[in-house]
Amino acid sequence: MIVADKKPIEEIIQQVESYHNVLILGCNECVTVCEAGGKKEVGILASALRMYFLNNGKDMRIDEVTLERQCDHEYLEEIRDRIDRYDAVVSLACGVGVQFMAETYLSKPIFPGVNTCFLGVTEKRGLWTERCQACGQCILANTAGICPVSRCAKRILNGPCGGSSKGKCEVNKDLDCAWQLIVDRLKALGRMDDYEKLFSIKDWSTDRAGGPRKVIREDVQI
């Protein structure tokens, strides 16, 4: 899923303080699972903002809506009849949702309420870690199912570097060395011979290097 983290409320206050009718718009998908932008977080943020502005003598209406998703037109359409009641929207969706809202409602100021962090997993409640950087050409088949692009601080394809120490990365002792994990798993799979296969220079054109990306599937287009 897409993992996001809450923005400091002070930052959101700054973004919206010049408006009078603000919609806090949550998303039921990834940001709900990572507890950054679901219905509950919408409620907490809205409540805190209402108290802040009331306490500061500012007349401010703050409403709450949480959509199924903000990355599909159908769901964004659900608020079309209401959108004109607001002069600004704080979207607690990931950066994708914020942008799709902005594209859908061209003249409405949309502010991000979360920092979108990475594609990752819930290791345990309150701990989300990165697993994928969406490079567009998956190499996991050749790296024992562990991704050096997202999990090595230098995205080294022929690792580990000289900074790998006791299974940890030179950048941070709390960070696993991706290549230690790869070697461990190659061993577990009985495939250590694969370690010596040289990884050729990667084509990054499907990564962000190639510019904004598209997936076109004519077979499913109607």
């Binding site: 409320i9 002070e10 907490i44 805190a48 903002l49 108290m51 802040y52 306490n55 500061n56």
Partner: peptide, 8 residues
Amino acid sequence: KLLNTVGV
């Protein structure tokens, strides 16, 4: 924390 931030 939130109550501190919003001045309550």
